[in-house]
């Protein structure tokens, strides 16, 4: 087998940038949601369902969750790049993580629009 150091894939910048942008989206959403909930004098189930009954809130939440999943994908792959050296194990972990994240994405839509 030829043993060469393989580098040169050109997605370093793209992924780094996407991770920063999704982080900003998540930060804005988290701060907004937290301040809304903290400002409610009576926080109960009705307030919660009322908030998530608006299409705008559902869309924003989905944007937040999509950002979270993409952010998590880049982060997990970064960890795998550092610690998992075998390409077979690496590919298996990648596939499992992608499948899990896709499942979470479908589940999120189901939760947000399913009630």
């Amino acid at each position: 087998m030829v043993n060469r150091v393989v580098v040169g894939a050109h997605y370093g910048l793209r992924d780094w940038l996407i991770q920063r942008i999704t982080a900003a989206v998540m930060a804005v959403y988290s701060v907004m949601l937290a301040s809304y909930l903290l400002l409610q004098p009576h926080l109960n189930y009705d307030v919660w369902t009322g908030l998530f009954s608006s299409q705008l809130m559902r869309t924003f939440t989905l944007l937040f969750l999509s950002g979270l999943f993409y952010h998590a994908w880049i982060g997990v792959r970064d960890i795998v790049m550092d610690y998992v050296k075998s390409p077979n194990v690496r590919l298996s972990i990648h596939v499992l993580v992608i499948l899990a994240l896709l499942l979470y994405a479908i589940w999120s839509v189901q939760i947000l629009w399913g009630f």
């Binding site: 040169g8 050109h10 997605y11």
Partner: peptide, 14 residues
Amino acid sequence: LNDLEDPYRLFRCH
């Protein structure tokens, strides 16, 4: 810049 636009060469920096 091309040479460093790789997930390893520069972007391993955390």
